[in-house]
Design a protein around this nucleic acid. Structure first.
Length: 492
RNA sequence: CGGGAUGUAGCGUAGCCCGGUUAUCGCGCCUGGUUUGGGACCAGGAGGUCGCAAGUUCGAAUCUUGCCAUCCCGACCA
C-alpha cells in the first residue's frame, strides 16, 4: 500500500484529497459527487454529532424526523428559498421501473408510472417542516417550538470534493418557531454560540462569528449569522450558519398563532445547520504532511498502544501489562486501542497512526517493562519520551488536554498571522495574492461594490464580525465613506 | 455546465503513438519460515470485465464514436 502523502506546500488540494482517502475517512462512490463515509470517518462524525446533539438538548431542543421528499408545490411556496435552491435540486418524476422489451435484463423507467406531482429531494427542509408546523401551532402556548433533525440532504453541485462539497451530505438542521421577533433573534444568536463553542472547544478550530451581507444571505432569511474558519492554505471556510427567517416562512405556509390577547399573528422562525463539511474544516485546519492531526476531544481513538516484542513468549507478558494500562485509561473515559495485530511491524504501525492522527501513541516492549516505563509519542508535536507507568493514566489525561489546547493555540496563531488590515486596493490585492487569509477592509456597503470586488479579486465578504469596531474609513474600491471594516477572504 | 487531463489487480504503474503468443513491474494479499524499538526478509502462490458500451478489423488495452467517473481551471455553490 503506497502511503506517501503529497506535501501541502507542493499541492495543497492534492494533499487534502489523498489524505481523506489514505487516512480511511471516506472514499469516492459509484455515484457522481457522493462519498462513502468509512468507519473511521463516521466514528469522527458520531463524536461530533453526539456532542452537538447534547448541546442542542441542553438548550431545550428535541429531535424529530421529516421526509426526504418535498412535493414541488410546497417547495416553491417560499419564493426566495425555492429560487435559491432551484438550480441544484434532484427531482423524482417516476415511481417504477420495468424490464426493457428491447433489451433483456435491462430496466427502463416505466412511462406509465409518472408522478402527478414531482418530488424534490430535500436540499434543506424548511418547506416540508413549515408545512408540518402549520398543523402544530395554534396558540402562544405551542411556542416556542424547538426542533432539530439529523438528516441527509442533496444539492446537485457541479464541482464536488470529499466532505467539503458533496452532492449528498449529512447534517443537522434546527427549525424553530417563536412568538416574537426578539425571541427568534435571541435563538439565532444562541445557536451560533453553540456552534462556535463546539467548533472551538472540541474541534480546536478558532472561528469568527459574524453576519453575512445581503448577497451572501440564506435564501429566504432576513439575517444569516455564520462562523468562519481559516484553513492552512489561507482560504476561509464557512463552518456553520444560523438564520433569522423573520416571518417569511410563516407567511408562505400560513402559520399563525393566537397570543394572550387573542390576537392572531404569524410566528417568527429560525433555522441553523452544520454538516459533514466540518470534517473538511478539521482536516484542513490541523493536519500536516504526515497525515491527520485530531484534537483529542473528538478523535475516534485518543491513545493507541503498540506492543514491541521479540519472540512469541514475550507477547503474553506485554499483553498482560497493557491490559492493566487499558483498564486504567478506560476508567478515566479515555478511548484507547491496543493494536497487537501481527501482520505489520511497529514501524509500519507508527506511520499508520500518524496518518490517522491519533493524538497519543504508546509503545511498550520488554525493555520498557523492566524500567517500569512506556515510550509515549504525541502526534501534534511529534515529541517522544519515556514516561513512568506509575500515574500513567492521569499523565495521559492531562496530556490529552494539553494537546487539545496546543492544537487550538496553533490554529489561532496561524489565523492571527493570516489576518491583515488593509486600506487601499493595491494592498488588498497584494495581500490576497501573496499572503491570503482574512483581510479586514472598508467597504461602502453596496452589493454592487461587493460584486465588483469579487469579480476582480475572487475574494468575498466572509462576514461582518459581531461586535465589530466602528470606525470611519473609505471603501477600498470606490473610496466612498464606510463606518466599519468587513472581513474579506478567498473561500471554499 | 464550458475548457484541459486522467482511467490497466486493493494501491502505484509499463505497454498505447506504430493493433498480433500467456498484459509488465513494485507494494499489498495468501501459505510456510525467520523476524519485530520508525514503513522487515526469504521461498512459494493467488489475484485482471485493460472505466463502460458500441464500432472498425481475421484479430483491439492499443484505432473510432458515445457514455461514466475522478482531478485541475472557469462558471455555479443557502
Amino acid at each position: 500500500m503506497s502511503k506517501e502523502l503529497t506535501k501541502r506546500a507542493d499541492d495543497y488540494s492534492q494533499w487534502y484529497n489523498e489524505l481523506v482517502v489514505k487516512a480511511g475517512l471516506a472514499d469516492h462512490s459509484a455515484v457522481r459527487g457522493c462519498m462513502v463515509i468509512k468507519p473511521y470517518g463516521y466514528a469522527l462524525w458520531e463524536n461530533m454529532r453526539d456532542q452537538l446533539d447534547k448541546r442542542f438538548k441542553e438548550t431545550g431542543h428535541v429531535n424529530a424526523y421529516f421526509p426526504l421528499f418535498v412535493p414541488k408545490s410546497l417547495f416553491e411556496a417560499e419564493e426566495k428559498n425555492a429560487e435559491g435552491f432551484a438550480k441544484e435540486c434532484a427531482i423524482v418524476t417516476h415511481y417504477r421501473l420495468k424490464t426493457d422489451p428491447q433489451n433483456k435484463g435491462k430496466l427502463i423507467v416505466d412511462p406509465d408510472a409518472k408522478l402527478e406531482e414531482e418530488l424534490i429531494v430535500r436540499p434543506t427542509s424548511e418547506a416540508i417542516i413549515w408545512n408540518t408546523y402549520k398543523g402544530w401551532i395554534q396558540s402562544y402556548r405551542d411556542l416556542p417550538l424547538l426542533i432539530n433533525q439529523w438528516a441527509n440532504v442533496v444539492r446537485w453541485e457541479m464541482r464536488t470534493r470529499l466532505f467539503l462539497r458533496t452532492a449528498e451530505f449529512l447534517w443537522q438542521e434546527g427549525h424553530t418557531a417563536h412568538a416574537t421577533r426578539n425571541e427568534a433573534i435571541i435563538e439565532t444568536e444562541k445557536m451560533l454560540d453553540v456552534y462556535a463553542e463546539f467548533v472551538e472547544d472540541w474541534m480546536a478550530v478558532p472561528v469568527i462569528k459574524g453576519i453575512k451581507t445581503a448577497s451572501e444571505r440564506f435564501a429566504g432569511a432576513e439575517e444569516t449569522y455564520c462562523i468562519e474558519a481559516m484553513m492552512q492554505d489561507g482560504k476561509a471556510l464557512q463552518a456553520g450558519t444560523s438564520h433569522f427567517l423573520g416571518q417569511n416562512f410563516a407567511k408562505a405556509f400560513d402559520v399563525k398563532f393566537s397570543d394572550k390577547e387573542n390576537k392572531l399573528d404569524y410566528v417568527w422562525a429560525t433555522s441553523w445547520g452544520v454538516s459533514t463539511r466540518l470534517i473538511g474544516a478539521l482536516i484542513m485546519a490541523h493536519s500536516d504532511d504526515q497525515g491527520l492531526v485530531m484534537p483529542p476531544k473528538i478523535a475516534p481513538v485518543q491513545v493507541v498502544i503498540i506492543p514491541i516484542y521479540k519472540g512469541e513468549e514475550s507477547k503474553p507478558v506485554i499483553d498482560e501489562k497493557v491490559a492493566t494500562i487499558i483498564a486504567e485509561l478506560k476508567v478515566l473515559g479515555i478511548r484507547v486501542k491496543y493494536d497487537d495485530s501481527d501482520n505489520t511491524r511497529p514501524g509500519w504501525k507508527f506511520a499508520e497512526y500518524e496518518l490517522k492522527g491519533v493524538p497519543v501513541r504508546i509503545a511498550m516492549g520488554l525493555r520498557d517493562m523492566e524500567n517500569n516505563v512506556v515510550e509515549l509519542a504525541r502526534r501534534d508535536t511529534k515529541e517522544k519520551k519515556s514516561v513512568s507507568l506509575n500515574g500513567l493514566s492521569t499523565y495521559i489525561k492531562d496530556l490529552l488536554q494539553e494537546i487539545q489546547q496546543n492544537i487550538y493555540n496553533n490554529a489561532l496563531a496561524f489565523r492571527n498571522e493570516k489576518t491583515s488590515v488593509v486600506n487601499t486596493w493595491e494592498e488588498f490585492v497584494k495581500v490576497l495574492d501573496e499572503k491570503a487569509g482574512f483581510v479586514a477592509a472598508h467597504w461602502d456597503g453596496t452589493p454592487e461594490t461587493e460584486e465588483k470586488i469579487k469579480q476582480e479579486s475572487k475574494a468575498t465578504i466572509r462576514c461582518i464580525p459581531l461586535n465589530n469596531v466602528q470606525e470611519e474609513g473609505k471603501c477600498i474600491l470606490t473610496g466612498k465613506p464606510s463606518t466599519q471594516r468587513v472581513l474579506f477572504a478567498r473561500a471554499y
